[in-house]
Design a protein around this nucleic acid. Sequence first.
DNA 1: CGCCTATGATTGACACGTCAACCACCGGAG
DNA 2: CTCCGGTGGTTGACGTGTCAATCATAGGCG
Lengths: 156, 156
Amino acid sequence: MPGRRKLPSRDELRTWREFLESTEVLRGRLAGRLQHDTGLSTGDYTVLLALSEATDRRMRSSELAAHIGWERSRLSHHLGRMERRGLIGREEHPGDSRGAQVVLATAGADAFAAATAPHLRAIRELFVDALTPAQLTAAAEIAAALRAHLQDDVAG
Amino acid sequence: MPGRRKLPSRDELRTWREFLESTEVLRGRLAGRLQHDTGLSTGDYTVLLALSEATDRRMRSSELAAHIGWERSRLSHHLGRMERRGLIGREEHPGDSRGAQVVLATAGADAFAAATAPHLRAIRELFVDALTPAQLTAAAEIAAALRAHLQDDVAG
DNA sequence: CGCCTATGATTGACACGTCAACCACCGGAG
DNA sequence: CTCCGGTGGTTGACGTGTCAATCATAGGCG
């Protein structure tokens, strides 16, 4: 089936490059703003958000990893850095001494509380405000289509 | 102006999160495929592409940085790694001893030649094929809108 | 010519991510 | 009880990215 092996057209490629580049710039700009305004990285924010919403503000490490979609190793490294800064703590899991509990520290809760409004505002300013309502809808559809397609790609 | 300070709605936020996440997965999948198939990172590919298209297959370092939109420091680090692997070489610029010329090495040209078809095919399979023609057009428009908006954000 | 600033490029420190190896503990089979 | 595979989690090595500092030369000006 020769059709299956066709390479992308010039236009498709240009679309890809511009899509790639603009989303990369967007991501970087948002990260820079968060870092500058609040001293947190987007990774920090993701972890703190998950812990804030967890019952008792603590979560098993692998549970946390699954919840935010990170590899365990990545999370472990990141938690190490966050622990050094006093944002989170680690405690032994009662009943399974392999396990670790990640607990939201006071400094972490404070940092998250201070960060959330500016961060959401930045998302609105840099992403939502950039697009028309129709484009925003299209973005959601594209995201869904990509997710579904990439899912299939892994499975089959 | 209270309107200006409004936070994104739940739907807007969900769109943002899914957009962010799906593009991240896409990027990672493409990078993994390129790495696996050809031993090159996306950064390697970007640099090699630019050098391949340059007259005489060489380019001034800062020129290259501007062309691919990288910071000079980032490029310098990356070139160091690529030079170690024999993909590129560095020569003194004739007429400006501050300058460095980056030259495409034979190994680099070969690696790029071998990588381009698989990479383009991966872009088609993972990105182009995931979207309907209408969605692809929408993606191009979104990219353009984001680029324009982020441009303004820096300027004004 | 000798100074001075701007520019081209590199470096070092550090955050972040992936991969593979590893360690410790759990729980079941013999 | 002992062995053993599976699971939870960490570690080390290394590639990648950013920021700030540094260094050398270019090029103009006195």
